[in-house]
Nucleic acid binder design. Structure first.
Lengths: 209, 209, 209, 209
DNA sequence: CATGAATGAGTGTTCATTCAT
DNA sequence: GATGAATGAACACTCATTCAT
């Protein structure tokens, strides 16, 4: 069993100088993560990359996990910023429009920083605080579930939990893999096709032919 | 000069012993992986768990990566063993039957050793030799692609590459997440429902309503 | 040019504030010493405990050693304050009375702050400035030596140096250990017994039966 | 509060090579302790002094405390080796002879390695396993207590616990301080004088003039 | 071949101390 | 003066890997 390590930031940087330092460290963490992967990322490397002494790093973060956790939180926040507005707008829309919009938005959210997203998802062990990579999934699931509840009469599926799970997971994965591993094949007109197809599949599923 | 006696049995005995050692080490690796996660797994721990000296371990494997890679290969092989026959049978079947069969088989394959599968997918960094976790995906994709080629006339989709990607990725993810994270919710009759729904979605997609 | 006004009060106010700061730091040092021991006591902890910035701390003390040395000096001073008067009174007294008084006084001095005394004696390395823990012993030795010189005719011992050493060290140790490690066993009537016995032993020694 | 650290040796060195390594490390620890004191002794320094890699050190000892604890144990054992025989012989002897013998033996035990003894007593914080520096005291106390019990009729003291405490602590301290801090003043004929005086004091005390 | 003692580069982490604000 | 962010030397400790036995 992996031992529990502190992952909460140690002190919140209120002063200007501090904030810059913290930012530098988070950017450095992301950069190192991309360059060397999670395993080879060390606090010393990160500090050096940030142009900051190792002592300073430990004044703000208790270790590697905490840094990565902060990067994850920040990244998730950025993805959510892209999606949040659209998600609210979607609620009243009929299925076709709603699904289309959602698919678009989820793909867009994955475009924020695909390489970082990839490293985060592929390399960071889902343990302790690092579980937060999955927070997005849970939020999205709840949202889809809520939508289905509202539009219960328009859908042919009985088990809303199951349907929400299937829809959320499917769209999320397809968006992720498409953006992260096949970014070339969903650029230009192929992009439209991809969106069309995914939308069609989900809509077809929900409406029952 | 010693007379030429049959020595093959002896050699074979040695080989047999080696094989046992190797197996012990692979099992130990899997066990440690489950117990401590990838990061905290060390060659010394593995050797001890296997009841083998660290020196012996290095006689068979050049390091941790190699051990984990071997475990991955073995695990993938086991999953494939479950699926292989079914996959051959599926080729001539019409869409409905084929998809249903495939979904069943992929779920079954994920049931082989879900906890190990989970650790392998979630904790092992996809780098170098460790990329092999994705080998299954690639194989499955090729298979789906081949099926669609054969049944081109029965499907409504134009871009077979895209369709194969969507189908494979969707089924794989749903099977994985269902087995690994929601094993309770796909047991008993809910299992049938899950299979039905996924099948319906894919079939609907492929046939175009 | 500004006219010459009385500024002493102001300066004195400043000095007063400084003195409070210094006191706060010394008290904090003692508190941390008790709480965490010498090794785990750090200047940062002490500054925080004192409610003072680390920068300020270094304005008054060059480091941990200096702080602890100051605490030692202060503590020794307090112990001496308890003993000093009695020690002067003792000089003209005959052996029985003198020894009895001295034993009482030394025990009393150890009661000033036994826990701090214990930490100081047990945990602070006797090196450099920190040697001062032994200052008390030296002072006490000189005193005993002087007493014996004066009362040379009443004592049966020849080697006054040796006798002074034996008496001082014995009483000091017994008082220390009794107060610090067996405080319970020298409370109430047992206290009287302890004082009696020690006195009897020393007196018997000095008078030679 | 000082945190608890492991102090038990990690594996007992049975093989010859190992035993040499362990010995080298213990000797190095003692040497470093003498040279730099407890605080400045670091595992790295010790390893280097022992001509051993830091990794080897940690294969046998979990840290500095454990090393020092082992040195203490060893040193105590050596002191006990000097004393043990004499201690047994002493039991049946009458007071004068017994006390004289004991004082001699305790002084002799302190002569085993006075400088190491000094560092151990003065510098090593009495915490956790390191408390063992006091083990000797406890053993000695029990012994004296037992002797007094047996010779109850010959002694004038009532409270045997108290008497045992006073005798043990007094002799121990005088022996320690004499050997460690005044080794010059108890060499040659002054040595005899010292033994005589201490013996006389204790005997006088026990017999009540 | 097996063994496990030995290695040491590398990582995590602390803390006395400085110095710009 | 006071502050506390920043520093970095030093220390604790692990673990992949080698090699004499």
């Amino acid at each position: 069993m992996p031992r529990k390590t502190r992952t909460d930031p140690r002190k919140s940087a209120v002063q200007q100088r501090s904030q810059m330092t913290v930012d530098a460290m988070l950017e450095a963490t992301a950069r190192i993560l991309l360059k060397s992967g999670y395993d080879n990322a060390s606090t010393n490397k990160i500090a050096q990359e940030a142009g900051v002494s190792i002592g300073s790093l430990y004044q703000y973060f208790p270790g590697k996990e905490a840094l990565v956790a902060a990067v994850i939180d920040q990244h998730m926040e950025e993805m959510m910023d892209v999606a949040r507005v659209a998600l609210a707008e979607v609620m009243p829309l009929p299925i076709e429009a709603a699904v289309r919009k959602l698919v678009e938005v989820i793909v867009a959210a994955h475009r924020v920083n695909p390489t970082l997203h990839r490293v985060l998802v592929e390399q960071v062990p889902r343990t302790g605080r690092l579980r937060n990579v999955e927070a997005l999934d849970r939020e999205a699931y709840e949202l889809v579930r809520a939508y289905l509840e509202i539009h219960r009469d328009e859908v042919a599926v009985k088990d809303l939990d199951l349907a929400a799970f299937i829809c959320q997971k499917t769209v999320e994965t397809l968006a992720h893999t498409a953006v992260v591993n096949h970014s070339d094949s969903i650029s230009g007109k192929r992009r439209e096709l991809f969106l069309d197809e995914v939308t069609r599949m989900i809509v077809g599923y929900l409406k029952g032919q």
